[in-house]
């Protein structure tokens, strides 16, 4: 092995501190200061280059001749160290015979960390002085750090805005008196059900005798009745059903996945029963009931929202016309024989 030093080494150490000079047999005879730092404590000088680094691309014979054949090409390497650091490189094959920049028949290989530079800087404890003055690594590290900090600030802002948006939406979809959903929420859910072509039952529920409570015991009593009623309706429905208060004493229920008339009928009966439980207000009994009209999306060839709302409403009026405190499921016959508009 030749340990002759060449004047070019000084130049290379400054311009390419991550270079290695190989002799004709492919052994490392000189290495730039940064490469030495990377190999601190591990053998480098005197080692066969291909035993300390693996040439991943291009695929050539793992010999010095193979390496020299890569003259000028872009090399992808991986150190055979613990962390298996990825590296990019370029190799210059030195001429045979006459001495030039280094050992005849040898090679100069310059290395860089490429994209793994962030890890490498940490793993090998590198600093600004380890990179050539013209190298952009420090600027790149600066940018990565600056952008990460800015991104983190933006991410936090996004999280806070998202939280605020969810709260605002929740508020915009909620009836403040009862905590039920409002008409906006109902429209939203109906639209989604139509878009995803899911079956559901649509139910209109009007309280009966509510006006009397308001008139005789005052609005505070009325409010308490509404809040009680809301709780009871919620207790009778499932989590993925929607209960909306759409007017003073008007409610709409959307019952997801309900397709059987018998089932709908049973739910309506149960709802009316639970509404009739008296509400106590200042020691006074407030009694209300409810009328229900309902329709099923599966009853239509192609469900149409406006049509279903109309039919469900029509059924509600039929229920009121039949003396209230009862329910009517929509039937096309109702249209043939429209009920008189009930009065509240």
């Amino acid at each position: 092995m030749s340990d002759e030093t060449y004047p070019s080494y000084d130049l290379l150490d400054v311009l390419c501190p991550m270079h290695a000079v190989l002799n004709a047999s492919g052994h490392v005879v000189h290495a730039g200061p940064t490469l030495q730092k990377v190999f601190a404590g591990k053998p480098l000088i005197g080692e066969r280059f291909l035993e300390i680094a693996e040439l991943r691309r291009p695929h050539v014979a793992e010999t010095m001749a193979g390496l020299r054949g890569c003259h000028g090409a872009r090399l992808h390497l991986r150190l055979r160290d613990g962390v298996r650091t990825g590296m990019k490189g370029v190799l210059i094959a030195l001429p045979q015979g006459a001495a030039s920049l280094g050992p005849p028949g040898g090679a100069i290989i310059n290395l860089s960390f490429g994209i793994s530079v962030v890890d490498a800087v940490r793993d090998f404890g590198l600093n600004a002085g380890d990179f050539p003055a013209t190298d952009l690594t420090i600027e790149m590290l600066y940018l990565i750090e600056a952008k990460s900090a800015a991104m983190e600030a933006s991410r936090k802002l996004n999280l806070r805005l998202q939280g605020a948006r969810i709260a605002a939406e929740e508020q915009a979809y909620t009836d403040t008196l009862t905590g039920l959903k409002n008409r906006r929420a109902m429209d939203h859910v109906l639209e989604r059900l139509m878009q995803t072509e899911q079956d559901f039952a649509l139910m209109h529920l009007d309280l009966d005798y509510f006006k009397q409570v308001n008139d005789t015991l005052g609005h505070a009593a009325g409010d308490q009745v509404l809040q009680n009623v809301a709780r009871r309706i919620l207790a009778q429905t499932r989590a993925d059903d929607l209960v909306a208060r759409t007017g003073g004493d008007e409610f709409v229920l959307i019952l997801a996945g309900v397709t059987a008339r018998a089932r709908l009928s049973e739910i309506a009966t149960r709802l009316i029963l639970c509404l009739e439980e008296p509400v106590m207000y200042n020691g006074q009994e407030c009694r209300v009931s409810g009328s229900i009209g309902a329709t099923l999306s599966c009853a239509y060839e192609t469900p149409d929202l406006a049509r279903m709302m109309e039919d469900s409403d029509l059924a509600l009026y039929a229920a009121k016309a039949r003396g209230r405190a009862c329910h009517v499921l929509y039937d096309p016959a109702l249209r043939a024989d429209p009920p008189l508009h009930g009065t509240d």
């Binding site: 940490r122 404890g125 590290l141 990460s148 900090a149």
Partner: peptide, 11 residues
């Protein structure tokens, strides 16, 4: 002390 790789990806 100032280590190049101490910030960046760790935020």
């Amino acid at each position: 002390s100032f280590e190049l790789g101490a910030g960046g990806l760790t935020g």
